[in-house]
């Protein structure tokens, strides 16, 4: 599904350039539940943003379902993201002035979908996430866990093949975090590929593959022992 070759990302700073991602090679297959870990500032979120196409300043090759993303224009990339990806944020990023139902409807409203079809999908999603009773509430009237539930519902309403989550339980207490991770597990079981960034070993345990990033380098991949060996030798 995802094939990244030699991906690099840097920022211009006063003195020169600061590299946040170095020569990343990564393949993710359909149906995987991948966890991306690493210390703060290691480049986890940068890699996630590059894969989510929120950032387009990277170098290298990126194929999505065989299509060369690196060769696409900004509009094509936006279309691809709109069609195939869903994004869950640590701080939910619900829009305060929209109700739960309207927040969930938001990605559909940008897809030129007929209104009736959208309403049906929103109703289904509310039902699926057990939040029908909260559909007319505003985010400020919900708990953190409920907000993140809405955030996930919003991310999956258009049935993306890839769900990207940046510290999805970072602002939640453990009980709420557990519910969210169970939901991710269920979505994955239903066929959604998931890539999550987390500091939590417990959350990582829900996934079936672990990646580790350090100083911009991909240093560990539980499904690629060769990478681990190479890193060990480099370290020695």
């Amino acid at each position: 599904m995802i094939d990244i070759r030699n991906l690099e990302r840097s920022y211009k700073t006063g003195a020169g350039q600061t590299w946040v991602l170095r020569r990343i090679d990564l393949k993710i297959d359909r149906g995987e539940f991948v966890t991306l870990m690493g210390p703060s500032g290691a480049g986890k979120s940068s890699l996630l943003n590059a894969i989510a196409l929120l950032d387009d300043q990277w170098l290298g090759e990126y194929y999505f379902d065989g299509d060369p993303v690196h060769a696409m224009g900004r509009k094509q990339r936006a279309e691809l993201a709109k069609r195939s990806m869903g994004m869950v944020f640590q701080s939910y990023h619900l829009l305060d002035e929209l109700t739960v139902a309207e927040n969930i409807d938001l990605p559909l409203s940008y897809k030129n979908m007929p209104r009736a079809e959208r309403q049906a999908l929103v109703a289904d999603t509310l039902d699926r996430f057990n939040i029908v009773g909260k559909k007319d509430l505003f985010p400020s009237q919900l708990s953190g866990g409920q907000q993140q539930l809405v955030g996930i519902a919003r991310a999956v309403i258009h049935n993306p093949t890839l769900l990207l989550a940046d510290e999805p339980t970072g602002n939640l207490h453990s009980e709420q975090a557990k519910e969210i991770m169970e939901l991710f597990k269920e979505l994955n079981r239903q066929g959604t590929t998931i890539l999550q960034v987390t500091h939590s070993e417990t959350n990582a345990a829900y996934g079936n593959r672990l990646l580790e990033v350090r100083d911009g380098w991909l240093v560990n991949d539980s499904s690629n022992p060769r990478l681990n060996a190479a890193q060990e030798s480099t370290t020695r």
């Binding site: 929120l54 509009k75 936006a78 709109k82 994004m87 990023h93 940008y110």
Partner: peptide
């Protein structure tokens, strides 16, 4: 800016 970024991240194009 946060609202605008969220809308953009959820698929709103520049013209929208």
């Amino acid at each position: 800016r946060r609202e605008i970024a969220v809308r953009a991240a959820l698929g709103a194009g520049s013209s929208r």
